[in-house]
């Protein structure tokens, strides 16, 4: 196991390098000169050149990339071009808001998804099953920003049960988490259902019943434990989609998270902030998948560790 963990950690390094390269290139091939945008409308060519010089934008591209990576390795992300504040300070608190949003949404989708999936599988082809699967299809096809807007319209604007925007209190958290977690819940429900159905027809389930085990115990102790093994992988991937989805949800609910920050700064070409944010989100995603890999192996004892 230890060897496996070390090897997987080492594999993360090239992946993260790839991420830095992609972000860097994407920013630099986007049209629009950042120096011109920062200098403001109607600025003279001289001012623009000065700004570009100051930001290092006149250096050859590969040198710019090398500086970026060298600094990133030292966890130095520089200062924001737009506000002049250290990038670390700009990102700091916002990062935790996004993590909170993603974690709560994941918890919600795992919880609802697994319960719904198990119920569906146990009552296969029943009214309940068909109902749950229809709902899941609906939840899966609904864009999270649209669901967010609808929820806001009903529960915040019309019923006025909860505030329409912001982040912090439980009443503020609930709508964005539902908006963001629904698609995941739907995917996990479908996955759990099919996995459960496969497991339930296995020989060891019959063995469990032949022991005199209660049906509830057969389902949870014997079937679910096995059925969850493939589901864990989906949860890991889901977390990545949530980080992406957070951009839209944060915008809809005016939440001061990392996603919204990136969207803001893309408009003003604030390269340091964008690069650092994307790098952090990518690192988080890769790391979560690493954890999923480990737990997958812990759950599934049959897989050889090395």
């Amino acid at each position: 196991m230890f060897k496996f963990i070390v090897r997987r950690l080492l594999q993360l390094i090239p992946v993260l390098f790839g991420v830095t390269l992609l972000v860097f290139l994407m920013l630099h091939i986007t049209p629009g000169n950042p120096a011109a945008i920062l200098a403001g409308e109607g600025a003279s060519q001289e001012t623009i050149d000065n700004v570009a010089n100051r930001l290092g934008l006149n250096e050859p591209l590969h040198m710019q990339y090398i500086y970026f990576v060298m600094d990133a390795i030292r966890l130095d992300f520089g200062t924001s071009w737009r506000t002049g504040m250290p990038v670390a300070d700009e990102i700091g608190s916002r990062f935790w808001v996004t993590v909170e949003l993603a974690v709560y949404s994941t918890i919600l989708s795992v919880f609802i998804g697994i319960i719904a999936g198990v119920i569906s599988a146990v009552r296969r082809y029943s009214f309940t099953d068909v109902g749950i699967m229809l709902l899941a299809l609906f939840g899966l096809s609904m864009p999270n920003f649209w669901l967010g807007l609808m929820l806001m319209q009903w529960f915040a604007v019309q019923l006025m049960w909860v505030p329409a925007s912001g982040w912090g209190s439980a009443s503020q958290v609930i709508l964005p988490v539902i908006a963001l977690g629904t698609a995941g819940a739907a995917i996990i429900a479908r996955m759990t259902r099919s996995s459960m159905l496969e497991v339930i027809s296995q020989d060891y389930i019959r063995t469990a019943r032949a022991k005199g085990t209660k049906e509830r115990v057969v389902i949870y102790r014997h079937a679910l434990r096995n059925a969850l093994i493939p589901v864990v992988t989906v949860v890991g991937l889901q977390f990545g989609y949530l980080l992406g989805g957070a951009v839209l949800t944060e915008t809809v609910f005016a939440i001061n998270g990392l996603g919204r920050l990136v969207v803001d700064r893309i408009a003003s070409r604030d390269f340091p902030v964008i690069q650092a944010s994307v790098l952090i989100i990518a690192t988080l995603f890769v790391f979560v998948n690493f954890l999923v890999d480990i737990s997958y192996r812990l759950l599934n004892k049959r897989i050889d560790l090395d």
């Binding site: 020989d203 060891y204 019959r206 063995t207 469990a208 102790r221 014997h222 759950l299 004892k301």
Partner: peptide
């Protein structure tokens, strides 16, 4: 089937 009659996770 002894290979599949025992629960793999217990």
């Amino acid at each position: 089937e002894p290979m599949t009659s025992l629960n793999p996770v217990h």
